[in-house]
Design a binder for these strands. Structure first.
Length: 587
RNA sequence: CGGGAUGUGGCUCAGUCUGGUAGAGCGCUGCGUUCGGGACGCAGAGACCGCGUGUUCAAAUCACGCCAUCCCGACCA
């Protein structure tokens, strides 16, 4: 049975909704694939769900191939389990909490480390049961501070999350590698241009991780990519390398100068007529309750994640203006390292060469000139890599040139270590009969976000340009004269031939003018479009269009079945994809 | 959480400043003409103008409160 547009619930819109900002959001709504229920929460309509399911199917295949087993965990989770892991207190407001009728605490699962670890600790008691990798594809809820951009950052979304359990470090490495490889296979098969990048492991915790970024100018993340070697890292992670030799401690003496009202680096630099590179920013932080100062050059950006990692603290917050006054004795804007009473002072490594800088004097409306860190600061200074990398910095691996493209995070793999297995007591007996803690990894793919990212990367003026593996239907047959039984019958034959060639097909049999069908086909972004109408049939041809290239090919009605299979393969090739029939693989 | 903006038929918006009969386009229903890149004509249906309170003879319009949605920001001294 051919799916027919005449009965499909796919309400397309000529105009974009007023509340949509980004292109994937606008197009998903216009193409009749999603509708908003409330902020950050969407209903997925038939066409949207088909795209989501296509992504899910490929994810499932590759996960199974990698040896993971599918399960389905509950969305509602007991608060007590989250207390055991310590995250009931630490996860914050993204965790939507509520009580049942008995007043017991529950939450909607934003991720499932607790539940899966609870599951495994009950049954896995022997090294013989390891390794184990369990995954699910399921709705997640995260009460985002500010949901936005349609399916890109919403509160309720569909995610594939997998969790690996291993007996030892080597096994955990292997599991991690298997997932990394599976993710490479998944995103390649989906027809996306993407990069795996080194990443910080963030709040989930753990020691090592990679993100999978779909390259798109509208991405929320910036990544550092080497143009010479294969180094790629999230901007927050990318290391800055270079030679930073201590410089001779000489030069003019430290001098206090009045700088009334000059709070920012720009104001101070302008007032003293120096370059911002000659100013040191002193940033004050509260690190697990301890006062800490971080020093970077005036034109640099401090990378808080690097600072947090360098300090090894759990919570890092910028000091409040009251704290700043308390620690420095001056209002915000005049902090400096000279005589500063904080627990630790960290400085970016490039300041090792620091001579003749301008810094705050820890006194209202005053700064010092001619500061030499080694000479003028009595306290110990820890030099570390603290600043955010820039496009001007060399690649930390090979010193080649860096690019800073934008990306959308669609996948993330973590080595978790024993953080959750330790907290929840997931232990087993090894060969020697000794009790040990399982080593975990976790691996996520934002399935709904993949669909949105796919559109961000592939669209044009007319609408979505779906890669064939993601499209809700790979092919559409536009029947231009549905009232003419001969034409309609021919359209059904064309649809059958496409199906035989391996494509899933929708038949546009609506009693609409041709223009409406053409517009909708392009808007929804069916990769293969075949037009069956009186005019073409009179010449004995079916006109086929490749949505991506716009190229039109006339295929003879007579040998259509054979011709269309070849044409389909050519379209997939244009995407750099093979159709999997083994005839010819592209790329 | 701070700042800004918006809320008017299903959708996109005008009308609000200057209070006085609720509008347009799209979509929808019917009829007719059209029919290969979002057709045209005619006739229709459809709105507690986000909610509440107040001011007024009179409120979509003014005031206050609330709610919702979107955008920017969340401490880079």
């Amino acid at each position: 049975m051919t799916t027919k547009m005449s009965t499909l619930y796919a309400p397309t819109l000529k105009e974009a909704p007023g509340d949509a900002e980004v292109v994937s959001h606008k197009l998903l709504v216009r193409a009749g694939m999603i509708r908003k229920l409330t902020s950050g929460i969407y209903t997925i309509l038939p066409l949207g769900l088909r795209a989501v399911n296509k992504v899910a199917a490929i994810v499932r295949e590759e996960m199974d191939r990698a040896g993971a087993q599918e399960i389905l965990m509950p969305t509602v989770q007991p608060g007590d389990l989250w207390r055991e892991s310590g995250r009931w207190e630490h996860y914050g407001k993204e965790l939507l909490r509520f009580e049942d009728r008995h007043g017991r605490d529950y939450c909607l699962g934003p991720t499932h480390e607790e539940v899966v670890t609870d599951l495994v600790r009950g049954e896995v008691r022997s090294y013989r049961q390891l390794p184990l990798n369990l995954y699910q594809i399921q709705g997640k809820f995260r009460d985002e501070i500010r949901p936005r951009f349609g399916l890109m950052r919403c509160r309720e979304f569909i995610m594939k999350d997998a969790y690996s359990f291993d007996a030892d470090e080597a096994g955990a490495e292997k599991s991690y590698r298997a997932m990394y490889d599976a993710y490479m296979a998944i995103f390649s098969r989906l027809g996306l241009r993407f990069r795996p990048v080194e990443a910080d492991s963030g709040s989930i915790g753990g020691s090592f991780s990679h993100e999978f970024m779909v390259l798109a100018d509208t991405g929320e993340d910036t990544i550092a990519v080497c143009q010479a070697c294969d180094y790629a890292a999230n901007l927050e992670k990318a290391e800055v390398r270079g030679k930073f030799d201590p410089s001779p401690e000489e030069g003019p003496r430290l001098t206090e100068v009045p700088t009334p009202g000059a709070h920012t680096v720009e104001e101070v630099a302008a007032l003293l007529d120096v370059n911002p590179t000659q100013v040191i920013k002193t940033l004050l932080y509260d690190a697990d309750g301890q006062p800490v100062a971080a020093l970077v050059r005036g034109d640099r950006e401090l990378n808080e994640i690097k600072l947090k990692n360098a300090l090894g603290c759990a919570e890092l917050r910028m000091a409040s203006p009251e704290r700043v006054r308390e620690w420095t004795g001056a209002p915000v804007g005049f902090a400096g390292p000279v005589g500063l009473g904080v627990a630790r002072i960290l400085a970016d490594q490039e300041l090792r060469t620091a001579t003749d800088y301008v810094v705050g004097a820890n006194k209202a409306d005053a700064h010092f000139r001619h500061l030499c860190l080694g000479r003028d600061v009595a306290a110990k200074i820890e030099y570390r890599d603290l600043r955010t990398i820039t496009a001007k910095d060399p690649c930390p691996r090979c010193s080649g040139p860096l690019g800073l493209p934008r990306g959308i995070e669609v996948g993330h793999v973590f080595k978790l270590g024993t953080k959750y297995s330790e907290a929840l007591g997931a232990r087993f007996l090894d060969e020697a009969g000794k009790e040990r803690t399982t080593i975990m990894g976790c691996y996520g793919i934002g399935v709904t976000r993949v669909v949105a990212a796919c559109i961000e990367q592939n669209h044009d003026e007319a609408g979505i340009v779906f890669p064939p593996p993601v499209a809700p239907f790979e092919a559409v047959v536009l029947c231009l004269d549905p009232k003419d039984e001969t034409v309609l019958a021919r359209a059904e034959e064309v649809a059958a031939a496409l199906r035989a060639a391996g494509a899933d097909v929708v038949l546009d049999d609506r009693e609409e003018r041709p223009g409406v069908k053409f517009k909708d086909a392009d808007l929804i972004g069916f990769p293969l479009q075949c037009v069956v109408g009186g005019k073409g049939l009179a010449r004995g041809v079916v006109e086929c269009k490749d949505r991506r290239s716009g190229e039109k090919t006339e295929l003879p009605v007579e040998h259509f079945a054979r011709e269309v299979a070849l044409w389909r393969r050519a379209v997939w090739c244009g995407w750099g994809l093979g159709t999997g029939d083994g005839v010819e693989e592209c790329r």
